[in-house]
Amino acid sequence: MWNYSQKVQDFFLKPHNAGPLEDANAIGEVGSLACGDALKLYLKIDDKGVIQKASFETFGCASAIASSSILTDMVIGMHVDDALKITNADIANALDGLPREKMHCSVMGQEALEAAIRQWRGEPALPKTQEEGKLVCKCFNVTDLTIIKAIRENHLTTVDDITAFTKAGGACGSCRDEIAEILETELKRMNGELPDAAPAKSEARPEAAAKPQVTFGATPSMLTNLERMQKVMTAMQLIRPQLQADGGDVRLVDINGKTVTVELTGHCVGCPASKATLHQVIEQILRMQVEPDIVVKEAGD
């Protein structure tokens, strides 16, 4: 049960900034009792747009409480423009990772923050993805833009990933086909097979792709072969531009269980650093994005 990082446990047992904030001038509320978790985030923002105080009230599990609490710590002293750049991955990383099935707690935190700041700016007190998106999951009230944002910011590659991060499709399941279609389209866009139809504006952080991925805490991975292959292929698309920048490239040769065989091409061939590239770049990224025990081999090794 304590499959939480020490930080999650600490912030759950001794949460900072708990309780309502009397002089709050921005409040963001997301979730509901029916959904099983809900967060009310209180902010006191000064005239210059700097968050002076923050507090929270959360109905939910340990990770929901910890995510809310650490978020309040993160935003105090921050300008709202910078606060809006906080992603769910930032929240999860600040907690040293969350179990996969709890990632939606970090998404909830990000959305409450955005809703509060929007309210302060006189906009509807909803995350933009919810205001502008089309409703996909009626059980948990999740829109297509929320799903797209989660896919892009967290490099999600399966419908189950999307459920873990947004809860969409987790209850009655009737929207799972629609989620699968959204996912397919987004993956194609990310691979450059489709033109990029500007997604939710609040995301669009070009550095997001190169940023280290969220760690999934201690939850053991349970990927099927097919899911693993899909994830490896998606991750390879993120690795290639990094090598291409140095005049090299990499080709995926084979995936056998957790062993991924690649062929380094271009300037990478014969480069004295190619072994390091293999292990420090490719293997590390695959281990973070796919599974912690992936092994990368060079073809012909």
Binding site: M1, W2, F12, L13, L33, A34, C35, G36, D37, F59, G60, C61, A62, A64, I65, E101, K102, M103, H104, C139, F140, T163, A164, F165, T166, K167, G170, A171, C172
Partner: peptide
């Protein structure tokens, strides 16, 4: 007005083992 997993973890700190019908995961509307 509170959630089961949080209750169980707090009880666990006291050394009390109980269980909850609620599993606060992404798939648990019910």
């Amino acid at each position: 007005n509170i959630e089961g997993e949080a209750v169980l973890l707090m009880l666990d700190r006291l050394g009390i083992c109980a269980s909850s019908g609620s599993a606060c995961t992404s798939g648990s509307l019910e």
